[in-house]
Computed example of a mutant assay.
Amino acid sequence: MSRAFIGISGWRYAGWRGDFYPRGLRPADELAYAAERLDSVEINGSFYSLQRPTSWMRWRDAAADDFVFAVKGPRFVTHMKRLRDVEEALANFFASGVLALADKLGPIVWQTPADLPYDPDLVDGFLDLLPRTTAGARDLARRRHERMHGREYLEIDADRPLRHAFEPRHPSFDSVEFATAAAAREVAIVVADSAGTWPAIDRVTEGFVYARLHGDTELYASGYTPEAVDHWAEWVRTHLDAGRDAYVYFDNDARGHAPHDAVALRSRLQA
Rank of each mutant, 00 (worst) to 15 (best):
G45E: 05
D253I: 13
A165F: 07
D121V: 10
A195I: 02
V98D: 01
A192E: 00
R185W: 07
I156P: 03
G24H: 12
R237K: 14
A100Q: 05
H239G: 07
R244Y: 11
A95R: 04
R142F: 02
L219E: 07
H260L: 11
A35Q: 07
E152Q: 15
S172M: 10
G207F: 03
H260M: 03
T225R: 11
E146I: 08
T78E: 08
R151W: 12
A114L: 00
G150N: 06
Y153G: 03
R138T: 10
R84F: 00
A192V: 00
V236R: 07
D174I: 06
L130F: 03
Y247S: 11
P168S: 12
F208S: 03
T217Q: 08
A34F: 00
K104M: 04
R82M: 08
W16D: 01
L219M: 15
L101R: 05
V191D: 04
H79Q: 10
R147V: 14
W232C: 05
L162W: 04
E146T: 14
D65M: 01
V109C: 10
S55A: 12
D261I: 05
T225K: 09
Q111D: 02
V187R: 10
E218I: 13
S194F: 01
I43M: 11
T225C: 04
R12Y: 11
A137K: 06
R151G: 00
V41M: 13
I156Q: 09
D29L: 14
D115K: 12
V236G: 02
A262L: 09
F93A: 02
R58T: 14
V77R: 08
T54N: 12
H164M: 01
L83Q: 06
N92K: 03
S9F: 01
V248I: 15
D66C: 04
P22L: 06
G223C: 12
W110F: 11
E206D: 15
R60D: 03
L31G: 12
T133Y: 07
D19M: 02
I6P: 08
S194P: 07
G106A: 09
H231E: 11
A102C: 03
E227I: 00
R12T: 14
P131L: 11
D216Y: 08
E146S: 13
P117F: 11
V71K: 02
S55K: 07
D216S: 15
H170T: 11
T238Q: 11
A35G: 12
R138H: 05
R266S: 13
G7Q: 07
D261H: 10
P161C: 10
S267E: 15
A35H: 07
I189C: 04
A181I: 05
V68K: 14
I43E: 01
G18H: 08
T217I: 07
F126V: 08
L99N: 09
P22Q: 09
W59I: 06
L99F: 09
R75I: 03
Q51S: 14
D230E: 15
E234D: 14
L90W: 06
D121Y: 00
R203A: 10
E227T: 11
H239F: 04
R212S: 13
E87V: 10
V191R: 15
P107A: 04
F126E: 09
A182H: 04
R237M: 01
